[in-house]
């Protein structure tokens, strides 16, 4: 066969992918297996009394209204982060695409925030929104609005969404801009000659052609909102007020690392793992079919 001529060695391919395989096994599969095993245990913090309880941790979780609240918070939060991040990025990309002079400077500035570590970004927003010493509440106070996200759940959600989406805008912007620049000018020019308004041109031509990019970004943004926003929440609201910004990942941390309920926390990680696997499978299998490439 022709293929054999290229890869004559049978062991070499495995040898070449071994580093990646080992990393995946050690840092992903093994801890995931540990989490799965621990989710079937109820044990004290030091591990003196360990009891195998099958699905008791899961039953406890699913019967806990707080857990369902956390599920709801996570979905609202992720949807908002993805929407805000993508809409603003698209808007900025569309504008940056039309800039003729100094385009490089604009682009650099817009991409810049992506280089900021999530926790640092969160601390910056925490400072700006701080009800006692932040500059934003100070300005709002001038307009007679009393901002306190330690008390008001809606305001707390706003803070974590803004702080999380802000970073992601740069990333989205980069992809949208690349997508926009890949659209043949001739298509848009033809539509313009036919008398389509700029708005119509965008919706009928540009947007459909951007849909693969948009879909890809949707997946990336939701996964980001699910898993990488811990630092933001930890630095700004600590999940409060009440439990209005306590996402599933934050709850895993709180129950496991603060509360030392290892079994319950592991069970939550396992559920999270299942959610993300399902989400990815569903999106790729069903949503992808409707996207034009």
């Amino acid at each position: 066969m022709h293929d054999n001529a290229v890869f004559s060695h049978k062991v070499l391919p495995y040898f070449l992918i071994a580093p990646q395989l080992i990393i995946t096994l050690v840092f992903f599969i093994w801890p995931a297996g540990q989490a799965l095993y621990q989710s079937f245990l109820i044990e004290d913090a030091f591990g003196f009394s360990v009891e195998f309880v099958w699905f008791e941790n899961f039953i406890y979780l699913l019967e806990d209204p707080e857990y369902w609240n956390s599920v709801r918070v996570t979905f609202v939060f992720s949807a908002l982060v993805a929407l805000v991040g993508m809409i603003l990025a698209l808007l900025l990309a569309a504008m940056a695409d039309r800039v003729v002079k100094g385009a490089g400077a604009y682009k650099t500035l817009l991409i810049w925030p992506y280089a900021v570590a999530p926790v640092v970004a969160a601390v910056l927003w925490w400072l700006m929104f701080n009800p006692s010493m932040g500059v934003l509440p100070f300005w709002m106070d001038l307009f007679g609005y009393d901002w306190n996200h330690y008390v008001n759940s809606g305001e707390a959600m706003t803070v974590v969404v803004i702080a999380s989406a802000w970073k992601q805008i740069s990333y989205n912007f980069l992809f949208f801009l690349a997508g926009l620049q890949a659209i043949p000018r001739s298509l848009i020019e033809a539509a313009a000659i036919d008398g389509a308004s700029p708005f119509k041109r965008f919706w009928q031509i540009v947007f459909p052609l951007l849909s693969p990019t948009a879909f890809f970004l949707l997946v990336v943004n939701i996964v980001y909102a699910f898993f990488e926003t811990f630092g933001v929440i930890h630095a700004t609201t600590l999940g409060g007020p009440g439990s209005s910004t306590k996402t599933l990942v934050y709850k895993v941390y709180e129950d496991g690392f603060v509360g030392l309920d290892l079994g319950g926390s592991a069970a939550q990680s396992v559920i999270l793992m299942i959610i993300v696997i399902t989400l990815t499978v569903v999106q790729f299998r069903y949503v992808e079919k409707k996207v034009q490439y």
């Binding site: 007020p241 009440g242 439990s243 709180e254 030392l260 309920d261």
Partner: peptide, 19 residues
């Protein structure tokens, strides 16, 4: 036992009164 979580629960409850 589980006092850190109980503190968290109380914080949440009190915040719901404050707002």
């Amino acid at each position: 036992g589980n006092f850190p979580q109980i503190r968290g629960i109380i914080d949440e409850a009190l915040e719901s009164v404050w707002n």
